[in-house]
Design a protein around this nucleic acid. Sequence first.
DNA 1: GAGCTCTCCTTGAATTTTTAACTACTCCGA
DNA 2: TCGGAGTAGTTAAAAATTCAAGGAGAGCTC
Lengths: 181, 181
Amino acid sequence: MEYMNTASTSAPPASEPAPAQEPRWLTDDQQRVWRTYLDAVTLLEDHLDRQLQRDAGMPHIYYGLLVKLAESPRRRLRMTELAMHAKITRSRLSHAIARLEKNGWVRREDCPDDKRGQFAVLTDAGLAVLKETAPGHVEAVRQAMFDRLTGEQQKALGEIMRIVAEGLQPTEAGADLPWLR
Amino acid sequence: MEYMNTASTSAPPASEPAPAQEPRWLTDDQQRVWRTYLDAVTLLEDHLDRQLQRDAGMPHIYYGLLVKLAESPRRRLRMTELAMHAKITRSRLSHAIARLEKNGWVRREDCPDDKRGQFAVLTDAGLAVLKETAPGHVEAVRQAMFDRLTGEQQKALGEIMRIVAEGLQPTEAGADLPWLR
DNA sequence: GAGCTCTCCTTGAATTTTTAACTACTCCGA
DNA sequence: TCGGAGTAGTTAAAAATTCAAGGAGAGCTC
């Protein structure tokens, strides 16, 4: 029995009517790759979450939000834009910004052009936290990943992840939204 | 300013009192790889979580717990062992198993050898859910990742992730616990 | 300019995860 | 066999995330 894969189990027939007849399992190698991927990703995210929670008082994703704001024109971004950049839902972002606002690291501002709109703006305090904690965070990322990989591997990883991300971009099937790359 | 990296920014001075001496930023290439990695991982986890929530009524990690139990000797594993396999804390596992127990997919059993111990046991209902939903899940994984990568890339990914996971294994510095590989 | 639809963002509740104890038991040594 | 230290697992509370609505403005059509 294999709930994740294993190519083994017989049958090669090709035509199919309904959704999932005779599933195409993963090969043993692919299964191993997949599990290793899950392990690595889980361990890494966990590691960085703890590192940032300890050193910056916020989870990894919140840190990422501050980084995106810091790199934006007037240290601000529309909520929807920020949500898309960060690959999270608007709901999640609303809650996150509310929390960061309580910390005094972000502030909301109304959008003059669109009364529905809101800008999330990085405050000076927010920028300060970033400056203080960025070195430690980069070091953690480096130690966990880049210091362990060859240049070739880093390049390959980038290409692989680009492909995976591209396939999942909510924009799907190259619809509109040209500004999403 | 770079809160994530960028090797560029000048200044080579070397002496400093506090913890992080002139941080070693990431190169532009590394930064790009890192961000692409984060995007891909976020999108993929999100995608699989929704897929499983929809088709199996549970988040990805819970599904993973059922898979591990299904592959274990008597469809059972000690709580601590399961937690280690799944790379999650015991606390998180306790909550997760409580939930799966409510669904009737897992049941707890006392360990006869150690009165502190508990086994998480996959029930027939749990096994049934797995059998029903595995094909759809594997298909999702395949479509999102394996169908898009060459054999070479799959192999490279496995190796890269193995290295990363190895570096973060809580066992750290090859301490004891030889059974953790 | 009324009505419809869509977009922007928020909100409350439910679910999940984290954090920090805490209970019960095992192990080990004096 | 007493006592201290460590292990297995749970739990309550806080924090974060998901889910399902909902309010309000923008935009379009007729």
